[in-house]
Design a binder for these strands. Sequence first.
DNA 1: TTTGCACTCCCCATAAATAGCGGGTTTTGC
DNA 2: GCAAAACCCGCTATTTATGGGGAGTGCAAA
Lengths: 242, 242
Amino acid sequence: MVLVAETTSLNSILERVARADTLTDMQQEIERLRDHFGVDHIVYHWVSSDGEQYGCGTYPMTWVERYLEKNYLRIDPVVLGCYQRFHPVDWKRLDWSGKAARNFLADAIEHGVGNQGFSVPIRGPNGQYALFSLSHNSDDDTWADFTASHHRDLIMAAHAFNQRALELEPGRAQETAQALSPREVDAMTLLALGYSRAQVANSLSISEHTLRVYIESARHKLGALNTIHAVARALSRGLIVI
Amino acid sequence: MVLVAETTSLNSILERVARADTLTDMQQEIERLRDHFGVDHIVYHWVSSDGEQYGCGTYPMTWVERYLEKNYLRIDPVVLGCYQRFHPVDWKRLDWSGKAARNFLADAIEHGVGNQGFSVPIRGPNGQYALFSLSHNSDDDTWADFTASHHRDLIMAAHAFNQRALELEPGRAQETAQALSPREVDAMTLLALGYSRAQVANSLSISEHTLRVYIESARHKLGALNTIHAVARALSRGLIVI
DNA sequence: TTTGCACTCCCCATAAATAGCGGGTTTTGC
DNA sequence: GCAAAACCCGCTATTTATGGGGAGTGCAAA
């Protein structure tokens, strides 16, 4: 077990990440990064604004397939926990109570994921949510020393992957374009706060019919199927804040 | 004009930021950081989950007051532009067309803000949105050299402020998000994805009435007034991911 | 200056969600 | 083992949202 990082090569790896043209290139760099840090696994995966999942990393293919097949995204305490957090977190500090979480953990370790882990969450303007994770097999103290001494390197690495991944993400151009008008933002915000249509119309001092026009135009701009969908998209894209 | 950064002292500043107990402490460190980078101004400001604004920085008090008084937050292309972005951006690359934006720029420069600028946006799980900005008076080339060579330091500094600011934010502790049951999570998620109740019930292979029970229990747990409200809260509390 | 966009208002018919009542089984945690 | 919580289903009635039409103003940029 080697837990040594040579900062000399980190910069060169991150520079290559910044110039990566494909996911395959990033995959290669993530393997270099794993060797650099001397950990068992590194994974970078993210959820785009349209809910699509992307990722690259060094987990065994069997685990990746199982993860997708079992839809572990909705169970994985790392994903769910980091979604509520701002800064990097050690997996030990997440909530592993609950049967589903414990089963997931057992399954993960069985498939080669380490017993220790550390994740850096980053989120973007349109609900993009990315996670840069390291996983390793070691005792608690060794792991604590490692994460403490490489905290900054890990943040920088996460940022590098993140920046490039977002640039490589397909269909980014037309999604950011669809902003909402001020009135539409008002309407979506008040709906998200639990007001009924009548209350929203009253709050905005407009007729309920006018309000409906805003809701519908917001729906169309957001490509939403109904009001709940529209509010959810506006929220997760950061167009409204509640 | 000095644009030299000694990396030896950056770490010590950021470590003091990480241990800062109050906004005043952070204010002190931000001044040290300004001297370290040799720029005219550094500002860190953020919008919390309840919409409150906080900030600290080296701008003249007259400008801060004018900014708040004129409600420039809704005009400032730096704030608006970075809200739509993921990674650090030079102010020159933002959209300064539009009368309001140009007036704002003139007003800002008149109050001592530099003609150059660079901002690092970061956002958090509950709609928090933070901006770490540097401003300086210089020509384009000098500024481009500075930002290029200190790109990583700036990201690290932004992260350091960000992490501490979020920890210092009041009212974070009592945000004990009551968890939803797996079925409630399913229901909320599918609703957020735009499915109607009939479609959700069909997807989950349960009766529409049973689905209704889940939606209502989720509503009660979330203290929501209606379904839209419940979905919005579940989303913004990170209980569901779409 | 003309084109676009944001903003405001109105009707009608149908689809969907909400509110209230009732009944039951299976899992999970202490 | 027991209690609590999660899981599942039925009914009726009312309120609310949605979908499809309309029309007209004003502002600002191309």
